[in-house]
Design a binder for these strands. Sequence first.
DNA 1: TAAAAAATACCCTGCACCGGGTATGTTTTT
DNA 2: AAAAACATACCCGGTGCAGGGTATTTTTTA
Lengths: 208, 208
Amino acid sequence: MITLVIAEDHQSLIDGIHLLLKYDEEITIVGIANDGEALVELVAIKQPDVVLTDIKMPKIDGIAATKLIKKDFPKTGIIAFTMFDQEEAVTQMVAAGASGYLLKNSPLEEVIHAIKSVAKGNLFFDKGIDVSFLNKQVTRTATKSILSKSEKEILVLIGQGKSSGEIASLRFTSVSTVEKHRKNMLLKLGLSGKGELLRYAIEKKYDF
Amino acid sequence: MITLVIAEDHQSLIDGIHLLLKYDEEITIVGIANDGEALVELVAIKQPDVVLTDIKMPKIDGIAATKLIKKDFPKTGIIAFTMFDQEEAVTQMVAAGASGYLLKNSPLEEVIHAIKSVAKGNLFFDKGIDVSFLNKQVTRTATKSILSKSEKEILVLIGQGKSSGEIASLRFTSVSTVEKHRKNMLLKLGLSGKGELLRYAIEKKYDF
DNA sequence: TAAAAAATACCCTGCACCGGGTATGTTTTT
DNA sequence: AAAAACATACCCGGTGCAGGGTATTTTTTA
């Protein structure tokens, strides 16, 4: 018997999975959460074999929730169930400790395959996912640079529509510093042009 | 017997609805589309009683598809099934001719209620929807200004990260004209500031 | 057909951001 | 302890866009 906890903010999809697993002998749903915070608490109580979770969720997103769960319950198998097939989302979920990645535009039966596969300790990736870059991850670990703490803070503020001047005031630094961080981010992210940082900030925020 | 066509780009949700309606005596699914274009074609062939459609879809979005369907088959009941509860999305769907509006974070059983209700000729709105503004629509019709054709085209290009110069080349007009349209849009939309048009363009594009 | 709206195009000012540097102190990693 | 990364702060030049106008032609609506 495989025990399962689902985290997903669309009740309709949860109901669909419920119907699907209703007559399945192997899998039992032992809990449902509508946001990341509830998920982490629920896992601590129920300690399920497998967790199926969305990435974009209220309060805590799926990536952060996965990290928290894996820290306390490393043997829990976690499957991401989302509509985003972007490389970065997959990479971050895998880095957080996920064992599987499912797309919402795949048939619902895939959910069963994924759960059973992950419960056995295997990995499961949707066929729509390009896993080739997971090798690159090793290479990338060196280049993993991504953004520093200050840069991330500034990026969030940019996403909120703040100007460099406003950001400088909020962070008690000079405008020069903020602009320097902006330029460094553009370099790191391989972007160029006036609005591209704002675009990046908005899209990242909205995606997961 | 109620005949139903579903349009939705997430196969998993379609499968869920399928399971739900499998043993329902009243409703039969006569077709499924994964994008707006396929939906319009399918409706012309099957002429269903009710259509359940997402708003955000490839090729043609749900709003445009609804208008096309209503033009040729006005007696078809159309229900929007989406995760957006924003006033503008609801208003536009209703203006396009939709008879119902369901949210994806509602229980799946609501789908049955909505379909049966709309099949009888009634309207059905999810309880999560604030319908109070639907009265305002009358008032708004005068102020319906929204954006003109050229303005919308330019807004889409802005959302794609194009600069005013690039947009001018693409549209074979002068930069002055593009900038004039930008300023008019800022006024119409009540926005101000450097990145706000880009932000608006990106958020609208992602929402529906 | 007259009036309103949209599309076209230009003027000027000013500012926020980009692209390229340089520099220095701190923190983190090796 | 040495090297690398980060955070801080400044310089200059250039440009794209906002904010404020004005004006003409075409299209749409009343």
